[in-house]
Design a protein around this nucleic acid. Structure first.
Lengths: 141, 141
DNA sequence: GAAAACTCATTCGTGAACGAACGGAGCCTG
DNA sequence: CAGGCTCCGTTCGTTCACGAATGAGTTTTC
């Protein structure tokens, strides 16, 4: 792993490119092990089960999704019957989201798969390397 | 950095979530420093300048983009006048892409920015940590 | 030399990211 | 209480990912 000189640019060594490739591989693993939910849908459902009833914007912030993005994700989760939305009587701007019975069941069933997805994504690294990698990655967020 | 027990799932500690957040930050840096090209457009242009005339499919493989994705990226680069497309007389299925004069100039101008983008993305890490991180990340692609 | 197998490019559909603009609603300060 | 600031949700437009299907062209194989 050499640091390239300013006049020698190799795309394949750039963080952005490597991040994209690692993400691609991870998404393929995810789609194979959890075909019924997309990563964002699972993230939103997981956070919702963790937090309980939450406004749409707040859920977006908790899952690091754009306001426009969480809207679409929430709509698709509602269409699947995993999430219910009710207007907040105390604040009429708010749409309060909560997992349905089916949503909680789906989350409970998906959790072991989520661990497997993480494990398989990190599989090329040794246990020590995995810890190192995750710790460094967390600092780039 | 603890490894969570199977019954304690925290979204914020999952590789997929961290990858997404790191990518988000990187994309924001990219958009700020290279507003005229998207990361994929830059990647395609860079590979094209590196490889010379290349078929669309081959460029897709070289940049780790789906066939359907590279089509759109190539179309947008053509619309910007940075890339030209000609049918291959030797193989009439092929569309051969090549950078235009403007494309080469744009790439030459963008290269220093690309280095700055990489540097800024990795800025939270020490020089040693950067090497470690990039090496580990490369193995997850 | 003809059928089978493969390759190249295109198109369609779904899911997603995110900036920008918008209107409705609450809050805060003068 | 009125004007302004902020927040909430929605919609629009552009870009991208990727599976699937299709049609045209090329190579392989028998």
């Amino acid at each position: 792993m050499t640091i390239e000189a300013p006049d020698d640019y190799r795309l394949d060594a750039q963080v952005g490119f490597l991040l994209r490739k690692a993400t691609q591989r991870h998404l393929a693993i995810f789609a194979a092990l959890m075909p019924d939910l997309t990563p964002r849908q699972f993230a939103a459902l997981a956070k919702l089960c963790e937090l309980g009833p939450t406004s749409q914007n707040a859920l977006g912030r908790a899952t690091a999704m754009d306001i426009a993005t969480i809207k679409g994700v929430a709509d698709r989760l509602r269409a699947k019957g995993l999430v219910a939305a009710l207007p907040d009587p105390a604040d009429r701007r708010r749409l309060v989201l909560a997992p349905t019975e089916a949503g909680r069941a789906s989350y409970a069933a998906a959790r072991p798969e989520a661990h497997r997805i993480t494990a398989e994504t990190l599989e090329p690294l040794s246990p020590d390397e995995r810890m190192t990698f995750v710790a460094l990655l967390a600092r780039l967020g």
